[in-house]
């Protein structure tokens, strides 16, 4: 058993679904004030657990996640607004810590790309439809070759075959 293999087996978290069994927030972490606690939960759900793969600190039972959950609650108790709490975390861990990427120049494409794509797609479909409608309005005269093919087809049809003309 090589070290790499053991590592690989250990790292093999799951085939598709199989994160660590979560159950993150502990009763003793929770704030007395239900409104504040609710804010803490909502904030935590948007903060990435840095040592986990792809979970929020609200979903993760990693140690650091627990520390950050506590930190979020302390900041709220100290009177921070939601934005201030997120800024505090971002100042230490960078925008990576936010599961909702901030709208900055570097995420402009991320945020507006899909809608731009939809607009371009809609315009494309409209243009294609208009083009086809116009083409239909002014049918091009058949070339000599096309005419002869058409005649051949019509005679085929008359003969009762339905073979694909091509």
């Amino acid at each position: 058993m090589t070290g790499r293999r053991v590592l690989r087996a250990a790292a093999l978290a799951a085939v598709l679904f199989g994160a660590l069994p979560a159950g993150a927030v502990q009763p003793d972490e929770m704030l007395r004030d239900p409104a504040l606690e609710q804010r803490a939960r909502e904030l935590s759900a948007g903060v990435r657990c840095l040592v986990c793969q792809n979970q929020s600190i609200d979903d993760s039972n990693a140690d650091l996640a627990r520390d950050l959950r506590k930190l979020v609650r302390e900041r709220l108790l100290a009177g921070d607004t939601d934005q201030q709490v997120l800024d505090y975390l971002t100042a230490r861990y960078g925008p990576f810590v936010l599961l909702e990427p901030p709208k900055t120049r570097s995420t402009w494409l991320l945020w507006y790309g899909p809608f731009a794509l939809l607009a371009v797609g809609a315009a494309g479909v409209a243009a294609a439809a208009a083009l086809r409608a116009r083409r239909r309005a002014e049918p091009e005269p058949l070339s000599a070759e096309e005419r002869s093919r058409l005649e051949a087809l019509l005679s085929d049809e008359a003969a009762g075959t339905n073979e694909d003309p091509r």
């Binding site: 840095l50 040592v51 650091l64 930190l71 230490r92």
Partner: peptide, 13 residues
């Protein structure tokens, strides 16, 4: 003890 200063450093492991 509580890892708070480490968080100030942005420690994640």
């Amino acid at each position: 003890r509580d890892g708070r200063i480490a968080i100030e450093f942005g420690v994640y492991g």
